[in-house]
């Protein structure tokens, strides 16, 4: 199980990273979501004591799953949800000011700005 968890975490992380390298910002957001998922899975895996839900009355003699990682995972899920929502609206705003969701274009604009700076410096 250990290696399987590690493997699935790695797959989620790797695909997320791959998506983040894509051109359009939608995919970047998707990549971040995947990476967050990878981390949350990892948190749960980090408390890998499979058992019953840690809810009273506790079952006698049976293992109980680690409640602390669950709490951590919940907090992390909520935080990443909030930030993802924020990122989505940021992407939208970048689009409305630049009319693009294309990263390439974004860096082109940066290059343009820098050329402008160069011209001003020379002047």
């Amino acid at each position: 199980m250990i290696v399987l968890f590690a493997l699935v975490v790695a797959i989620l992380f790797g695909t997320g990273a791959y998506l983040m390298l894509k051109r359009d910002l939608i995919r970047v957001v998707a990549g971040i979501i995947l990476i967050s998922n990878a981390v949350i899975l990892f948190i749960i895996a980090a408390g890998l004591t499979r058992g019953r839900a840690p809810i009273y009355p506790l079952p006698e003699g049976e293992p109980i799953s680690d409640p602390l990682v669950q709490a951590m995972a919940l907090t992390a899920i909520v935080i990443s949800f909030g930030i993802t929502a924020l990122l989505l609206s940021l992407v939208y705003r970048v689009y409305t000011t630049r009319e693009t969701v294309d990263k390439e274009d974004l860096s082109l604009a940066e290059a343009e700005d820098e050329r402008q700076l160069e011209v001003e410096r020379r002047a």
Partner: peptide, 12 residues
Amino acid sequence: TRELRAALIFTV
């Protein structure tokens, strides 16, 4: 645009 681009890079 300038600030938003900075914010995007920073955030991601």
